[in-house]
Write a protein that binds this DNA or RNA. Structure first.
Length: 462
RNA sequence: GGCGCGGUGGCAGAGUGGUUAUGCAGCGGACUGCAACUCCGUGUACGCCGGUUCGAUUCCGACCCGCGCCUCCA
């Protein structure tokens, strides 16, 4: 068994993965800010780290996976105000929606999902420590800022130089910060704004401090992996390192992992650009597992382009895999063989899911051949291998019939389809091929495709 | 401007110092009443220019192009 190699943003290269505690992995991923529905970019991160944690478990690690929920911030408060609702009502609704979306995509729930509002006390304690250590200061207006210049390693993750950041910053004469690069740990609230009491002002936490407080509280000061979306690298993660290491005096995280961006029409999909597709929108057109297949079929660090063609292709490819196991009872006790070995080799190499996908297709080819040769025992075993490998990626977990025939209530019912198939079989027996073809065409128009075989006719929805 | 990533066959997308993944689409054949599905066969691609090498798509350098971050954003 080879050693897992993973790409570390900190060192910008692949490194052998060695957890701090043998056999245990502690991982923290920055989750959603819950003021709107999840878009495909969120799905990318959700699925990427779902695959990573699934695979680490598949390899036998005891994984503690923490993914936070940011349930208080300026965007949330603004949106709640626009909607004329309490921000807690908004965030509860969005959290429920997020859980629905991720469940649809086959994303397993993290070990824990801490919410920022439950960690205000820990954040205040951390800020107090930072002030005591001289790494933070209280501004005249009651805000608290992190003094970036006090932290030697600032910029080590994003490879930025402090001088450049200061030189490039916009000059704001009214700014209460000592340096333009300093960032807020605590923001004093205005009249009527949501706030919590603190030693400095009634206010709310800055964005970055919540992740430092939640990650170190749940996982300890020093843990293995920290992940997130590509745009969190700077400033969010850079600031997390500065705060956490300044406060604890310990190294924060060993491996930083960042997913690639999702693009649409040559531009990054993002909320600020307004060009995003929400997960629920996409699921109106494509089965959830197709969306997952699409995401998993490229490497987590590479950029992906959302397009109808790409989703359709993913659908055809996934159909091929399900078709291979359709009608079989996969034997998952099948001994591990060359395919398992190759799959692990690829996945060990920085979670190369795109490569691993070729193994799934190779197994599907085996199955198709074995079935054609009438070797049901071999086919059943191969199907077990396919199921096993698929599960490590969160794919092929459905009953094939559900995948092929699942539809909505306004679709043609299975009973009607079966009747039509019987009628067509009768016509074929009578050599009335015109009638047989008419029935087949009619079903096709309603999105039902017939597959004839020696054993009879099966159907699936287009 | 600073920092970083990438340019692979019709498309998507892995990978490798020499035997050219995989999927989709296409083409030929088998199967089929005809199709579909499936099977067999078929495609010699690695931005440009130099260098290293017996040999580079793969290593090094320059260049061109695209993208991301530098502001809230997964």
């Amino acid at each position: 068994m080879t050693e897992i190699q993973l790409h570390n943003t900190l060192t910008q290269r692949k490194e052998p993965f060695r957890p701090i505690d043998d056999g245990k992995v502690r991982i923290y991923v920055c989750g959603m800010t819950v003021y709107d529905y999840c878009h495909l970019g969120h799905a990318r991160v959700l699925v990427a780290f779902d695959v990573i944690t699934r695979y680490l478990r598949h390899r036998g690690y005891d994984v503690t996976y923490i993914r936070n929920i940011t349930d208080v911030d300026d965007k949330i408060l603004r949106r709640a105000e626009e909607n004329g609702e309490d921000f807690l009502v908004l965030t509860e609704r969005m959290i429920a929606a997020m859980h629905e979306d991720e469940a649809a995509l086959g994303v397993l729930r993290p070990t824990e999902e801490p919410r920022a509002t439950d960690y205000i006390r820990e954040m205040i304690a951390m800020i107090e420590t930072l002030i005591e250590k001289g790494a933070a200061y209280v501004a005249d207006n009651g805000d608290v800022y992190f003094a970036v210049a006090s932290f030697d390693g600032y910029g080590k993750l994003s490879k930025k130089k402090l001088e450049d950041l200061i030189a490039g910053a916009r000059v704001d004469v009214s700014d209460v910060k000592h340096s333009p690069a300093d960032f807020a740990l605590w923001k004093a609230a205005g009249p009527g704004e949501v706030s919590w009491p603190s030693p400095w002002s009634n206010g709310r936490p800055g964005w970055h401090i919540e992740c430092s407080a939640m990650s170190t509280t749940r996982l300890g000061n020093h843990f293995d992996i920290h992940g997130g979306g590509p745009d969190l690298l700077f400033p969010h993660h850079e600031n997390e390192i500065a705060q956490s290491e300044a406060a604890t005096g310990e190294p924060f995280v060993n491996y930083w992992m960042h997913a690639g961006a999702v693009r649409v029409d040559q531009e990054k999909m993002s909320k600020s650009l307004g060009n995003f597709f929400t997960i629920r929108e996409i699921l109106e057109t494509y089965p959830p597992e197709v969306v997952r297949y699409f995401l998993v079929s490229s490497h987590y660090r590479s950029q992906v382009d959302y397009s109808e063609d790409n989703l359709k292709e993913a659908e055809r490819a996934l159909t091929r895999l399900y078709h291979a196991i359709r009608g079989l009872t996969p034997d998952e006790t099948a001994p591990e063989g060359e395919h398992d070995r190759r799959f692990s080799e690829l996945m060990d190499d920085d979670f190369n899911t795109a490569g691993a996908m070729t193994v799934l297709h190779a197994v599907a080819s085996d199955i198709n051949q074995q079935r054609r040769d009438g070797d049901d025992t071999a086919a059943t075993r191969s199907a077990g291998v396919l199921r096993r490998l698929g599960r490590a990626l969160g794919l092929l977990e459905q009953d094939p019939e559900a995948f092929f025939q699942g539809g909505s209530d306004d679709d043609l019912s299975p009973e009607v389809i079966e009747e039509q198939i019987a009628a067509r079989a009768e016509a074929r027996r009578n050599k009335d091929f015109a009638e047989a073809d008419r029935i087949r065409d009619e079903l096709a128009e309603q999105g039902v495709i017939l597959d004839d075989s020696r054993e009879g006719t099966t159907w699936r929805r287009a």
